[in-house]
Design a binder for these strands. Structure first.
Lengths: 245, 245
DNA sequence: CGGGCTATTGAAGTTGATCAATAACGGTGG
DNA sequence: CCACCGTTATTGATCAACTTCAATAGCCCG
């Protein structure tokens, strides 16, 4: 399945009609301009969103006025899923670049799950992968210094963009401003900048205003805090269905 | 539904037969002694675990030898779910107190999902709640100082124990050692201890070697970094099924 | 070509880490 | 019942990572 639909079939070999059903339950895709909010924390939960193109930050606001970006979403991601379990939305979804999203009303989502249990399984497994990503982000934040955290973040972004076919020769668009990266990594903008300069000097990457190129992935991986876990792919589905396969 | 089964029906009004089916697919409950490992990071993923009693830490190991506890599991929690999407287990499950768990083989889990879509929905929504918990832990780690993080952690534990009926008059068992709390909060043991002494002086809590009593919850909540989000309960299920209700 | 956002750099102050040592607890064997 | 020992808790002193304040420079856009 081509991006942006590649993630739907990552864990479960959905049929063409399964995917078509998912597509049917989405609204017409619409553009969101850079900086615009798709849905704010505290709003009513009326469903989830599918990101067809662009970059979206999912963030949580704290009482002290600080904001933590808990996930940078890329092409093919489902947005706002965690809030489905909560009375009101817990995260703010904000476009970091110009983006294209489609809304999926909660009611239609329920209908799809009822009619296509394989789609439900696909969503369940995708959600577990997101939990793993959060667990790793948490471990970086709690147990490593900021430089390594940023390296791990860069590698993650690279790999996910690569899966969406958006990396050429280690080079990819990177529309995230330094103050936003700082909110991901959990440091001040000032320190974030010092980290970038330090990474510049390392010679492992090249950096443009809206672009990154990883010139030495092996070197970067040595700096990162832990091994990048590998997804189970369709093996996950096979584990759940030992008979059918 | 009584603990430890209270969380199964938190979001979806499962029938008695749904719950019975879940219970059927679990192994005979077995004890795990304090300090024992239930499943290690890197092991094969052969299913998940249900925690009937006791405390279990879910942790991730980093290359630098540091360990981050990403979740402290309590009675009624499902353990090891995130690894279902990965080729090998990403977290280590270790008993913090004597505990009782039951194993749920992946294959039986798949069978339940196929036969009881409402159970699948319940698991999906529970997983979203866990994602929200991780998102908040992440925001605390990234954007607040350790003292507030610990307060937020304490409140969270209190609320979850309360939901399991394990709090009396603000008092609850707390078998977690300071070095383990340090691994949750992301600080050194030494600093963790200073935080506890500081909290002692605040007069908001009383502390014993294996016990906590919250004497001023309102005061604690003022210290915490952000509002405690409220779960949607069965409203989550109703959102997914607007017709049936 | 002015104005706002973004990036960069310096200097001083905090939070929390690390090293090191001591005290208290809890269980065990004699 | 007590002496012993490993684990856990507590405290002091020094050091590193990171923050905050402040200022300047560069980029993009109308």
């Amino acid at each position: 399945m081509r991006p942006p639909y590649h993630r739907l079939v990552e864990f479960v070999p959905l049929t063409a009609s399964d995917v078509e059903m998912m597509r049917q339950c989405m609204s017409q895709p619409y553009p969101v301009a850079k900086g615009q909010t798709i849905r704010s924390e505290g709003r009513e939960v009326d469903g989830v969103y599918f990101l067809l193109d662009g970059w979206v930050a999912s963030s949580v606001m704290l009482k002290n006025g600080q904001r933590q970006i808990v996930k940078v979403h890329l092409c093919g991601d489902m947005l706002g899923f965690p809030s489905l379990a909560m009375a009101r939305a817990v995260e703010t979804l904000e476009a970091v670049s110009n983006a294209t999203v489609a809304h999926i009303p909660a009611g239609r989502l329920g209908a799809v799950f009822a009619q296509a249990p394989r789609v439900a399984a696909a969503m369940l497994l995708s959600s577990q992968k997101e939990r793993v990503a959060l667990m790793h982000a948490l471990s970086w934040l709690g147990a490593t210094e900021a430089y390594e955290r940023f390296v791990a973040f860069l590698i993650d972004i690279h790999n996910r963009l690569d899966a969406a076919g958006l990396v050429t020769n280690g080079r990819f668009d990177f529309p995230v401003r330094q103050h936003q990266i700082a909110e991901v990594i959990g440091v001040s903008v000032v320190h974030m900048n010092r980290i970038m300069k330090r990474l510049d000097r390392s010679g492992l990457i090249e950096r443009g205003r809206n672009m990154f190129r990883i010139t030495d992935m092996a070197g970067l991986k040595e700096l990162a805090a832990n091994r990048i876990p590998v997804g189970a792919g369709h093996q996950a589905w096979e584990r759940l269905n030992p008979a059918m396969g």
